[in-house]
Structure formats: C-alpha cells, structure tokens
Nucleic acid binder design. Structure first.
Lengths: 140, 140
DNA sequence: CTGTATCCTTGAGGATACTG
DNA sequence: CAGTATCCTCAAGGATACAG
C-alpha cells in the first residue's frame, strides 16, 4: 500500500469513527448510583446496616471508627432523603436514635453482595492497592 | 416503673450495647471497590468500554463529553494499573491508541449489571436527585 | 447520647495551553 | 490523535468545640 493510500485510509477512519452513538445502557444508571451512593461513607454505612438489626448513631460511628460527626450525620441524612435508611427517634434521656435500612435500602443488598463477591475474589491477588482495611486488618 | 429504675435501665443499656463486634463481611470488599472504582470517572469508563469493542482515547472522551484530558488519561492509567483495562498502542501517524476491558475487567460486568438493574428500577420514582443524565437526557 | 457550628486543609477535578 | 504541563478552584471531608 502506498504511503498516500495509507494516509487516506487513516484519515477516513478518523473522520468516520463516529461509532454508533447508541446509549450505553449501563452508563445512566451508574451515574444515578454515583449520585446516591457516591462519596466516602455512604456505601460503608449501608454495609454496616445490612445486618438487619437497628443500630444507634454511636454504634455506627464506632464501627466506622474514623468517621466524624459531621460526615456521619450528613451521610445518614442524605441516605434518609434517598429513602434508603430509616431514622427512628426515641424521646428518652439521654436521647436514643436508631437507624435501619428501609425496604428500598434492603433491596440493593443482593446486588451489592454480587459486587462484593467479585471484590472478595479479586482482593487477594491485588497488589497495587495498599490501603489497610480497618475492619479485617488485611492490607488489600 | 420508677424514674430511678428507668434511668438505671437506660444506663445499663448504653453501657452494655457493645453489640457483637462481628465483622460485616460486606464492608471490607466494599472498601476495596471504592479504592479501585471510586471517584467520578472510573465506573463510567468501565461502562463505556463494556460494549466489547476497542475504543480510542478520543472516542471515550466524546462519549464522556465533559471529561478533561487530565482526568481521562489519569483514570485510564489507574484502571490499567488495576488490571481492568488494556491499552493497545499502534505506532501510526497520527497516533492511535485503543482501550478494551481485560478479562478481569469484563468479569465485573455481570455484577455491575445487577446494581445497574436495581438503579434502573429505582431511578424512575426518585425525585430527590435532580442531576441531569447527559446520556439519556432524563432528569434522574 | 446525638448531633450542630465553625473553621480549616487537602486533593479531586477543571481550564487552558502546549507537545510529539 | 493522544496525551502532558501548569495553574487554579471548589467542595468534600477533617478537627475541635459545644449544645439539647
């Protein structure tokens, strides 16, 4: 093939590579997920609450040991606004507030378990990430 | 119940509510996931590449229309380092580089499809989030 | 105990220009 | 085309103190 031909072919490929602009079906839902689960703490909180038992504010905080009050209360509020978490307040002294997953919140758990399963299968062989998991004390 | 009794009961509850400190099995893998998929762009990139066909740098950029060069090249590099994305460079002029998912990258897709399915089912009824999805033009 | 109020730091991400 | 180099902004998140 001549140089000119090759050049033309390349140019043609570049200019015609518009790709079928078909919508990636995954992309939009994923963006939605990033909106409601994005950030550092929301997914961990969901995990903590996945056990099914109602947990107190301080109890969640303890399990997420390095979360600040600001982030915890803010994250819980946003999860509540998304309809994923239920807040039950008891008018006692000292105050007691318990958090649980709503039905909607619970409904994500099977899917979450799927990705967690993938993660578990791939964590062991991963060497690039040096983050220490504060829960299981393994360096993953 | 007397006031004193109630008080004692509350105190007892507080001090003994250590909860079984069992490890939440979900938490650690989720932290791992946040490490390799966290941030604004990595999951969207995975989605874009989920089609199976190799895509050029510029092509990915176009589909993610408002991503900057810095973020795109950086995200791709990190995904490559995690073994999820493969980079194939062709020594042509002008340069051509194509990206695909690796086998590891592909292996997350079924699980990702599960959470995306959940998202799709829940997006419609969601009113709190006002983010406009740039792909499907729906306000989700 | 369950948060709020404030102030502050850091780094993710953006804008622009430029190169091979 | 496929990125780098630079500089910059802004907001997520942290630290500390305090309140109901």
């Amino acid at each position: 093939m001549s140089s000119a031909n090759k050049k033309n072919e390349i140019i043609k490929e570049i200019t015609t590579s518009k790709e079928t602009t078909e919508i990636e079906e995954l992309l939009c839902p994923i963006r939605y997920l990033l909106n409601i689960f994005g950030g550092k703490w929301k997914l961990p909180i969901i995990c903590i609450l996945s056990g099914g038992t109602a947990l107190r504010y301080s109890s969640i905080k303890r399990k997420l040991d390095d979360i600040t009050n600001v982030m915890l209360s803010q994250s819980l509020k946003e999860l509540e606004a998304s309809g994923l978490v239920h807040r039950e307040q008891y008018n006692e002294v000292p105050p007691r507030v318990e958090y649980t997953l709503t039905e909607k919140g619970k409904s994500i758990l099977p899917a979450l378990a799927q990705v967690a399963k993938w993660a578990t299968e791939n964590m062991e062989t991963e060497t690039a990430c040096q983050t220490k998991c504060s829960e299981c004390q393994k360096t993953v």
